[in-house]
């Protein structure tokens, strides 16, 4: 049933709203809490995310990704937009302070979809600096400039590591078409 929720929403089936909340409510709430400065912001963000989902449901293409990943993409867009408005400027002491590898002791239990599990596996195959930058950027929500400051690394280098790492994970997941993979960054 999970894979047809967005199609039902796109066709105006209101009953799909309940299934959508039941299936993705916890996921969106978790993403919002992770990427919001406080619970009130997270609650506002969740409301906006669901409206974005209703609006974009018709754009879901099951040949590109799972519905879960598509919903997470919509959520990230909104959360990133809100983070940019906050314009947070962290105070990072040293490279050592941010060289924290995520703990994955419950990794297998926590993956919410196949692509998440594959992305976690792909991350392990990246170079350490790529993995660290992707973790800081995507999971912890830091901007490239913030990461560059934290790692005392040129901004261009951070961006290059991030892009190459992201493209490598994308290829591992089998997302994107051949002409994109040929592009060099």
């Amino acid at each position: 049933m999970a894979q047809v929720i967005l199609k039902r929403i796109a066709s105006g089936d209101k009953s799909a709203v309940q299934d959508c909340l039941k299936t993705y409510g916890g996921l969106i709430w978790s993403l919002a809490r992770r990427m919001s400065p406080n619970p009130e912001e997270a609650e506002d963000a969740v409301q906006e995310i669901f409206i974005d989902i209703w609006k974009n449901a018709a754009r879901f293409d099951e040949t590109q990704a799972s519905e879960t990943t598509f919903v997470a993409m919509i959520a990230r867009r909104r959360l990133i937009d809100r983070l940019r408005k906050i314009n947070r400027q962290p105070n990072v002491d040293s490279l050592e302070d941010v060289l924290v590898e995520p703990t994955n002791d419950r990794e297998q239990d926590l993956q919410v979809c196949v692509e998440a599990r594959e992305a976690a596996a792909a991350m392990k195959n990246l170079r350490p600096e790529q993995r660290q930058i992707l973790h800081l950027s995507i999971i912890q929500g830091f901007s490239h400039q913030e990461i560059a400051d934290a790692l005392k690394m040129p901004l261009g280098t951070v961006k290059t590591h991030a892009r190459r790492g992201l493209i490598q994970v994308r290829e591992f997941l089998g997302l994107g078409s051949d002409f994109e993979k040929e592009a060099t960054v």
């Binding site: 916890g26 990704a65 867009r77 979809c113 692509e115 992305a119 995507i138 994970v169 997302l175 994107g176």
Partner: peptide
């Protein structure tokens, strides 16, 4: 949207829901 979808998949890795 392949890069955005990839970032989303990474963001879901180890997400506690």
């Amino acid at each position: 949207f392949s890069l955005e979808l990839t970032a989303a998949a990474i963001g879901l890795a180890n997400l506690d829901v």
